[in-house]
Design a protein around this nucleic acid. Structure first.
Lengths: 182, 182
DNA sequence: GACTTTATATATCGGACTGATAGTATGCAT
DNA sequence: ATGCATACTATCAGTCCGATATATAAAGTC
């Protein structure tokens, strides 16, 4: 389940350009599986080379050619094979938590600023999910609704945890450790 | 806040080898910031080259030399500068959610298997955190306790969400979409 | 006694991903 | 008129991931 596979999955909804896919990554997948142009364009090129997608170049005057991709039968086979993975991963990479583990090397002000920014980020993402969910009359398939609910639940849990546990850093002893350790 | 910085942070607790750091990544940071040898050894080499750590090679008969790293003043400066980042990231990359978004292309059995394995994984990680927390008499600094609680809260929220929402995939209409779409 | 696993310890390599950057054109607002 | 947003492509250096290789000792198991 890499960027290539997710692109294939998106193409089952209809043909699309790299630019379209980027927008889809930002909206529906933003909270759980990000990808930038640096991943998407090479992925599409590789899929085209291996015959999993067809590419049609549509000339446009002024703008660069629009390259529209369409999934092939081979692409379907590949996608369904990937979806058979019984234990897909769910990974977290948190510079936030890594930084908090060394909170005793930071000033209390720095710590509180970081906690504030994490709450703001959670709020931003929650708002984003809500807007996305309400943006469309059509209803999403069950799977998409599941992922949106998942995202909302996790963000909410994160926000609540930070709010209810930030007092853990109130202790005055943390302030002096930096100097003492050095 | 990359692997290099976290290595520096760990070295503030005392000198260590790459092997020691790997163990630390697995235990205290496993749930939020993973790193393998392929990241750790190059990170240490780079830190040594830029003078952020000193390296002492200790010969051992039979076993390969043990290379012990120690943080330098320059390393401290670098670390404290990194810890000043007011908005560190918290990223999720979930093949699980990406796959669930395409649940309508899977069989109901496949979907349920994936959900089961996610719950098992959450349980495994919860158990791991509990064991780690109880493994040591010494108490961890506030920051580490915060990250452990964070991990537990998120895993618990994930497990509960999956259990309470797996019925979303019960709908019989999802079964036939695969054939229809093709 | 032979055999396998686990732990100690190093390190590299291909492939994948990230984030920044770059180019080129339209249209809209200030 | 100048800047900014949107539409569209694409590359590149740096970083990271997972697998793999190598070598030895201790400890458990058949």
């Amino acid at each position: 389940m890499d960027v290539k596979t997710v692109c294939l999955g998106m193409l089952t909804e209809g043909e699309a350009s790299g630019y379209d896919l980027k927008k889809a990554f930002e909206s529906s997948f933003g909270h759980c599986f990000a990808a930038g142009y640096g991943s998407i364009y090479p992925a599409l090129a590789s899929l085209a080379e291996s015959g999993c997608v067809d590419c049609e170049e549509i000339a446009q005057d002024g703008k660069p050619d629009r390259k529209v991709y369409r999934i092939t039968d081979k692409g379907w086979d590949m996608l369904l094979a990937e979806l058979a993975n019984p234990a897909p991963s769910h990974k977290v990479r948190s510079e936030f938590l890594a930084q908090m583990a060394f909170a005793h090397l930071m000033t209390p002000e720095q710590v509180q600023t970081v906690l504030d920014s994490r709450i703001e980020d959670a709020d931003r993402n929650l708002k984003f999910i809500d807007e996305f969910e309400n943006s469309c009359d059509c209803d999403w398939p069950a799977g998409v609704r599941f992922t949106l609910g998942f995202g909302r639940t996790m963000l909410h849990a994160m926000k609540t945890y930070v709010e209810e546990n930030r007092h853990m850093f109130d202790d005055a002893t943390t302030t002096t450790k930096k100097a003492a350790a050095r």
